[in-house]
Structure formats: structure tokens, C-alpha cells
């Protein structure tokens, strides 16, 4: 049985983090498991956590009237779900649903935010790491906006 801090050590977003920072992060983490179709959270729910997927796939859906849930993106092992916990009003903007069995590590937002407040250097490090993930996701999203496989080339 591996402890949480050895698990999160391998997660890309935490790579290269100092041992102390890793301990701070893992102090707010627990492991969790979802079965196929189980909902991690729904749009509008309070965003009091974020997840790192260790196994399986999670679909991020938005519900479109008359079309039903549309998958915006899928999240695979090693990737992070959620940054709504970073800023008020701490609400999810989409649904997250397990596609098959999912094992994840869940991080308590209030716990982490408090540690960030107390230790600005840690807070800056963590924010930088999330900003990088955000930028990457934004770039991929922009690429999809081009509808590059369509006639618009």
C-alpha cells in the first residue's frame, strides 16, 4: 500500500515540488473511488475539492437544453479536474461523471486554501502549477474552436 504522498509524487502537476510542499498537499488529500456512471460533482455544486485521476476516465459534461449532456473534455490518469475551488464563488461549471471505474485522489479545497494563506511561497508555487494546467487546457480548447477538420481549415 502506497501512501498518498508517494502517489502524488508521480502526478505531473506536482512534479519537482519540494518534500515539505508535497507533505502540505498530501495532508489535504484522501483517495476515492467511483463506479461507472457515478457523478463526481454537478454544475452549480459547491467546488470544495479538486481531483487527480489515478485510474479510469472522467467525462466533463455540460447540459445543453434539447441536446442533453455534451462531453466537453475527458480527463485521464495523471490529469487534474477542477480549478473552481481556487476562486469565489467556488461553484462547479460543469458535471463530472465516471466512465467506468475511476480511482482518484481528492484534495480538500478549504484545507489547501488555508495553507496557501499561511505560506505564500507554497501558495505561489501551487497557483503557478495550476496556471500552467489552465493555460494548456485553454490552448487545446482554442485549437478545437478552429474546428480544424472542418471546411474552415
Amino acid at each position: 500500500m502506497r501512501t498518498i504522498d508517494t502517489l502524488i509524487h508521480d502526478v505531473p502537476i506536482f512534479q519537482g515540488m519540494s518534500q515539505e510542499a508535497l507533505e502540505l498537499v498530501s495532508g489535504c488529500a484522501t483517495n476515492i473511488r467511483f463506479s461507472d456512471g457515478e457523478v463526481l460533482f454537478r454544475e452549480g455544486d459547491e467546488a470544495d475539492v479538486f481531483y487527480v485521476i489515478r485510474h479510469g476516465r472522467v467525462a466533463l459534461d455540460m447540459f445543453v437544453p434539447a441536446r442533453g449532456p455534451v462531453t466537453i473534455e475527458t480527463v485521464d490518469p495523471g490529469e487534474v479536474i477542477g480549478w473552481s475551488w481556487l476562486f469565489a464563488p467556488y461553484r462547479w461549471h460543469f458535471d463530472a461523471k465516471a466512465l467506468g471505474l475511476v480511482r482518484a485522489t481528492v484534495f480538500g479545497a478549504a484545507c489547501l486554501r488555508e495553507k496557501c494563506e499561511q505560506d505564500p511561497a507554497f501558495g505561489y508555487d501551487l497557483m503557478s502549477r495550476f496556471a500552467q494546467v489552465l493555460i494548456e487546457r485553454l490552448q487545446w480548447t482554442r485549437l478545437r474552436l478552429l474546428d480544424m477538420y472542418g471546411d474552415g481549415r
Binding site: 476516465r57 467525462a59 455534451v70 462531453t71 466537453i72 473534455e73 475527458t74 485521464d76 487545446w140 485549437l143
Partner: peptide
């Protein structure tokens, strides 16, 4: 991966360059 996961697609949704990282 696909840009838009329609129908009963349970595979990845996202752009193909994203797959390179993992």
C-alpha cells in the same frame, strides 16, 4: 480522441496533440 464526444462515445474528448504528453 475526438473534438466532440457525440453519441455513446466513451473514449477521449480533446485535441490529438494532447495525447502526446502521456
Amino acid at each position: 480522441t475526438v473534438d466532440r464526444g457525440e453519441g455513446d462515445w466513451r473514449g477521449k474528448v480533446g485535441v490529438v496533440p494532447k495525447l502526446i504528453g502521456s
